[in-house]
Write a protein that binds this DNA or RNA. Structure first.
Lengths: 236, 236
DNA sequence: CGATTTGTTGACTAATATCAAACTGTGTGG
DNA sequence: CCACACAGTTTGATATTAGTCAACAAATCG
């Protein structure tokens, strides 16, 4: 049920009545399954579809002139990481699967039809793109002001919060199949340094990331180290 | 003419016909003038208006738990830096004047009326928020992957490009009344380091920032050092 | 004109990157 | 079942970048 995932997700930030939900259910979605580390939407490509992550994780990434890569955001099930393609015609970054993932694709014209006919759906989708931007802003704060450990802690605290919001249990552990090199690309650090930071967080009993699982040992400390305050997520 | 500024700005990314322009002109704008360094919209405030920078510069900033401040973006005349407030009810950052500036305020309900009645205006405004997010993404790339000099160069190259797009001449110099401390807050560096980076860029004949003026000495070098590629600005 | 902000400098320190090697776990084919 | 390959993690040594502190100079402002 691709649309159910979407509906649940949109309802985190927006009110949708049963008619809206029905309209969303009526949209045809083309589902594909991808292996891990598959670039499924490419930078500079023309955007013709929007995607919904149905299971697994995806991330956005951008490659720079000098060959480095920056991961811009992580996307658990429910997220629609290329909504911006509705009104920006070319992709300015890649979309990549982090784990094996199922992804639903919806034609722009279908969504545009919903936008034109259902104001509450328009608002809900627009709002998603705005929350997206708010998350980017906070990511900038992380990279600009926080220490390596702070960035790591903030990332995990944010993920936990977002997973919880869509109903994925993340009280004391959650699935997140990431390597240290990718964490490095996300946090603007070297893989070696990520390794050391993770070791110290582990030693201090804050956090343990091991084979696909994030284990939260002390959430208060995590939130404190990361300076995490969830208001920017606008989950009212 | 507050609306003329807005119209010119929206037309950088979107097509607006004369009816659209007329509709925008009909919206009532309340203009205020602020001294430099004035916080004119505050974090956690309820958003009731959208603002347009009419002259001067503004910037977005966010203060962290540990007292640091991160500047998130700079906004020359024409920009509407709190459009997100249309659908996110609380501000997640401050808006501050960089220089003495005139700012137009428009009630949300007026804009919402335009959105409901004029699809092309809806699209234009939505698109603005999407370009905004694209700029944030690139800022993340800067902070995550570029050296201090690279970040500085990228910022200036981007500003130049955006100023040119709204018709502010920036061929070999432009006004930008910023202090080194604020550059530091924007780029995630210390003021001392910013000073040294600026000196070396000056010495290498790339760039000179002095009393309110950015002087561009060698734009090719600037673009190269910053790894600047303007496609993320989506100026078609 | 003095007061305050901004820019500059030098010496020193801390954070993080780089490089290279070794270690671990996991899956694969023989 | 073992040997091997591979990807990911860990370690140590060293280099580089950027931060801190403290003083001073220059510009700006009332």
């Amino acid at each position: 049920m691709p649309s159910e995932m979407m509906i649940r997700r949109l309802r985190v930030h927006s009110k949708l009545n049963e008619d809206d939900a029905a309209a969303l259910r009526s949209v045809s979605t083309h589902v594909k399954e991808f292996q891990e580390d598959t670039v499924f939407v490419r930078e500079s490509e023309w955007a013709t579809h929007c995607c919904v992550i149905l299971s697994g994780f995806a991330y956005r990434a951008k490659v720079t002139e000098n060959g480095k890569r920056q991961i811009l955001s992580f996307h658990p099930a429910g997220d629609m990481p290329d909504l911006q393609g509705l009104y920006l015609d070319r992709m300015d970054h890649d979309l990549v699967t982090l784990s094996r993932a199922r992804v639903g694709f919806i034609e722009h014209r279908s969504i545009q039809h919903l936008i034109e006919t259902r104001p509450s759906i328009m608002q809900a989708l627009w709002r998603e793109t705005l929350v997206d931007a708010a998350v980017f802003r906070e990511w900038i704060v992380s990279l600009g002001t926080r220490t390596a450990a702070g960035r790591m802690a903030h990332l995990i605290a944010e993920l936990r919060q977002r997973l919880t919001a869509v109903g994925i249990e993340a009280d004391d552990e959650f699935e997140f199949p990431i390597t240290q090199s990718k964490l490095a690309e996300a946090l603007g650090l070297s893989p070696v340094h990520v390794n050391r930071v993770l070791q110290s967080l582990r030693a201090e009993g804050v956090l343990d990331i091991q084979k696909n699982m994030v284990k939260l040992r002390d959430i208060e400390k995590l939130v404190e180290i990361g300076g995490f305050n969830d208001t920017y997520l606008h989950q009212q």
